[in-house]
């Protein structure tokens, strides 16, 4: 299972804070980018927001690139560019 979290404006746009994915459905081991592609197929209503090139992705609370490998049990997060400080 992979837990996917959304934050900030993206969470509001998708109206979803978290979802759990059965790893078989995304054919792990896979990558963060492949997961993003899968989410667009599984939730076509989210396509516009998930195709935003400025989105950032984290695996297990660390920012990573879309090529980063994804393993069963990982916590994934997608969010807009950060605006703290």
């Amino acid at each position: 299972m992979i837990r996917v979290l959304f934050f900030g404006q993206l969470k509001e746009q998708l109206d979803c804070a978290a979802l759990d994915l059965d790893t078989q459905s995304i054919a792990t081991p896979s990558t963060l980018g492949a997961l993003l592609q899968y989410l667009q197929r599984a939730y076509p209503q989210w396509c516009d927001q998930l195709q935003d090139k400025s989105l950032l992705g984290a695996i297990n609370q660390t920012l990573v690139s879309s090529e980063h490998r994804l393993l069963d049990g990982d916590e994934v997060a997608f969010f807009p560019p950060v605006t703290g400080g």
Binding site: F7, S54, P80, P81, V82, G84
Partner: peptide
């Protein structure tokens, strides 16, 4: 501060007289 502004996962939503508005990076 420069790194915090770019890499720390915080997001600001401003409450304005025209309604709430997420701050753009």
């Amino acid at each position: 501060m420069d790194y915090l502004k770019n890499f720390a996962p915080f997001w600001k939503k401003e409450l304005t007289i025209d309604g709430p508005c997420w701050v753009a990076a």
